[in-house]
Design a protein around this nucleic acid. Structure first.
Length: 343
DNA sequence: CATCCACCGGAACTTAGGGTTC
DNA sequence: GAACCCTAAGTTCCGGTGGATG
């Protein structure tokens, strides 16, 4: 049933984007000066997850490269490159400037120096998930370099801005901000339909099933695609050419949980223990949670470390905290049950 | 309504690790 | 191999906060 699996994959950038004309234009305008060889203001792209921030940014940047041949782009995911060193190193690596830099043993001053003396074509640096940067000095570093255009992508504008020093923050406030809102179900239908057109055999998905999947995605295109991918995978395994209701219904929880499962795999054993305690016990006060944890593991870390882990778990959306101060409790966020598939 | 106390989370520090340079 | 250059994870310390409690 699948003809071109790439089209369904995360990170695929379609030739045409739909329902984001305004955002595409706004972002293009910010980058316009590059075509005339002039410096640009930084752009801030914000909005919840799965609303096309990354896809649209990649789309705009690649179009610009078609128009202006002499421009280099670096797309950096700050989940992976979260320290100042890692991020700076990655930028240099993408520019092909890091060949003779020995990892770990080069002071960041020297990395910065490399950026300063960079002489190639103008560079667009996209800092995806920029709020994940532990050390926002990279933003400041890049900000001062005229040859570097910067696009900051974030789903947590507050968090990003709070980590910056005043000078950069005030400039970003006045910089172009492109805000993305959640998709409506009918927009998701169009988006999924376009991918189905290009990726699956003709007539593989009925209108009704398409709507069901779009509806179940809750405005998040990433979840929608994940559901579609999961359903198509199942159909392929059975060598059938049309999605059945069963495929779709089974794919909905699987697709929704895909991100969660991926995140769980990045945790280490004691962090996962913490999560499992919360899954088993439901809601717990910090003290109870810490006691359970100490009982469960052989070599417990301190309470402060647990708090750090909980923050991380909350970032991954695996755990939610509620209440402030003494009445704070933690709970695992609801998993999507297989049986309950009502919207 | 004031006081208390558990909790939060920033900052500085420690420890363990891995590489380069002389 | 000692002296550096770092990172990463965890610990210690602690001021601030705000719901609970008398």
């Amino acid at each position: 049933m699948t003809e071109d699996a790439r089209v369904l994959r995360e990170g695929f950038v379609p030739k045409d984007v739909i329902h984001r004309d305004h955002e595409v234009n706004a972002l293009s305008r910010v980058l316009d000066p590059l075509a005339r060889g002039e410096p640009t203001e930084p752009a801030l792209v914000s909005g919840p997850s799965g609303v096309g921030k990354t896809t649209i940014t990649k789309f705009v940047v690649s179009h610009l490269r078609e128009e202006v041949l002499d421009v280099v782009t670096v797309h950096l995911n700050c989940w992976q490159a979260y320290s100042r060193f890692k991020a700076t190193y990655e930028v240099l690596r993408e520019l092909g400037e890091s060949v003779d830099i020995r990892r770990q043993s080069t002071p960041h001053d020297e990395l910065l120096n490399r950026l300063n003396t960079y002489e190639g074509p103008p560079v667009i640096v996209v800092l995806d998930e920029a709020d994940q940067l532990e050390d926002a000095r990279l933003i400041y570093d890049l900000y001062r370099l005229p040859r570097f255009a910067m696009i900051l992508v974030t789903n947590d504008e507050e968090q990003l801005l709070s980590g910056l020093d005043d000078r950069v923050r005030s400039r970003l406030h006045t910089a172009e901000t492109v805000h993305f809102d959640s998709y409506h179900t009918r927009e998701l239908v169009d988006i999924l339909a376009a991918r189905i057109d290009h990726g699956l055999v003709h007539d593989a998905v009925s209108d009704e099933k398409l709507h069901r999947m779009a509806d179940a995605a809750g405005g998040d295109a990433r979840v929608g695609l994940s559901i579609l991918r999961s359903a198509a995978r199942q159909a392929d395994q059975e060598s059938v050419e049309r999605l059945s209701d069963d495929h779709v219904e089974a794919a909905i929880p699987e697709g929704r949980n895909e991100v969660r499962t991926k995140n769980l795999n990045t945790l280490r054993s004691q962090q996962r223990d913490l999560y499992e305690i919360l899954v088993d016990a439901g809601e717990l006060a910090p003290k109870e949670l810490y006691d359970c944890y100490c009982e469960r593991v052989e070599d417990p870390r301190t309470k402060r470390t647990m708090r750090s882990w909980l923050q991380k778990l909350a970032h991954y959306d695996l755990v939610a905290a509620s209440g402030e101060g003494p009445s704070r409790t933690y709970a695992a966020t609801a998993e999507y049950a297989d049986s309950d598939s009502n919207p």
